[in-house]
Structure formats: structure tokens, C-alpha cells
Amino acid sequence: MKTRKAKEQIVKELKEKFEKASLVILTNFDGMTVAESNKLRRSLKEVGAEYKVVKNTLMRYAYPGTPVEQIKDAFTGPTGIVFAFDDIVAAAKALKEFFEEKDSKLKFKAAVVEGKVADVEMIKQLASLPGREELLGQLAFTLKYPVNAVAWSLDNLFQKLVTVLENVKAEKESA
């Protein structure tokens, strides 16, 4: 049994996570094995997200004043929480894969994305977006393209100039 001080520390940490997380998803993990739970934790950790299971009574002390308060009615039964702080798309993708596994017992309860309540369809749409790395690659290409276009145009211009000068030289030599 945890001491009052330990419980207060858990509530404080949860409140901080509820305030900082860009994505908070509540799940029902009823019937999951320890191996499945560990697999879920690993897949989320790989993308910078976190999965926690805490008693609902402690969560009820942590959510007041945070965006998670909007989904307080979902804190019933066995509840696991997914926290994503940076790359919410990657976390949504990892969770979606887990939801869609053949024998997955993990169930969606509720979610808050960037301070707004979201349903399972919104999480699936979020998971279908390009990830952070892909978006950064697209941005790099977009920033690089104009520079490449100017370089190509200048190179093409110089080639045309050389061709014109060679034609002028050939005309003067033949005259």
C-alpha cells in the first residue's frame, strides 16, 4: 500500500503530464496480458510516448484544471493513459497499429488532442498523417528546390551563352 506522500507525488506527476501532453488517450486494458502491455509500452516509448496505468481515484485528483478534465467521465474501470508530448502523429500510429491487431484487447475510451476532445476516428485520421520525419523531409525539399532551380537556370543560361559565342566565332572564321 502506498503512503499518502507517494500518492501525492503520483498525482503531482500526473497533473504535470496532463498539462504538458499534446495528446492524451484513455484506454481500457481489461484482459490484456503483461506481455501485451509491455509490447504496447515499448512501441510507444520508441516514438517518444508513454503508457501509464494509475488508479482512477488518483487520476481524479490530477485532472482538475487541465484539458483532460473534459473527458473525466471516461475514468471508469481499468484505465491506461497514453501521453505524447512531441510527435503526436507517431504515437497515434503506434496506438492505431495496436488497436488493429487481430487479438488486441486494448479498447479506446476517450482522448484529448491539443486541448480538444477527440474520438477514435480523429485518432485514426491523425495516424494517417505523415510523421514528423517525413514532414521535415518535405520541408527540406521545399526549401532546397528554389535554390536548385536557380542553379539549374544559371547553368542552362551559361550553356546557351557558350553556344551563342561558338556560333559567333564560327561565323567570323567563315567570313
Rank of each mutant, 00 (worst) to 15 (best):
R4E: 10
V11W: 06
L14R: 04
K17G: 07
K17E: 12
F18V: 09
L23C: 08
L23Q: 00
L23R: 06
I25F: 03
I25K: 00
N28M: 03
S37H: 04
S43G: 04
E46L: 09
E50R: 12
K52N: 09
V53L: 07
K55I: 06
Y61I: 03
G65I: 12
E69F: 02
A74F: 07
F75E: 01
T76W: 05
G80D: 09
D86L: 09
A90P: 00
K93W: 14
F99A: 03
E101P: 03
K102N: 12
S104M: 09
K105V: 09
L106N: 05
K109M: 01
A110E: 01
V113N: 02
V117K: 13
V120N: 12
E121H: 09
I123N: 01
I123Q: 04
L126V: 11
L129F: 11
P130L: 06
P130Q: 05
P130A: 04
G131C: 08
L136C: 08
G137T: 00
T142V: 14
V147D: 13
N148E: 15
S153N: 08
L154P: 01
L154R: 15
L157C: 08
Q159I: 09
K160T: 10
T163D: 12
T163G: 10
V164T: 11
L165N: 15
E173L: 14
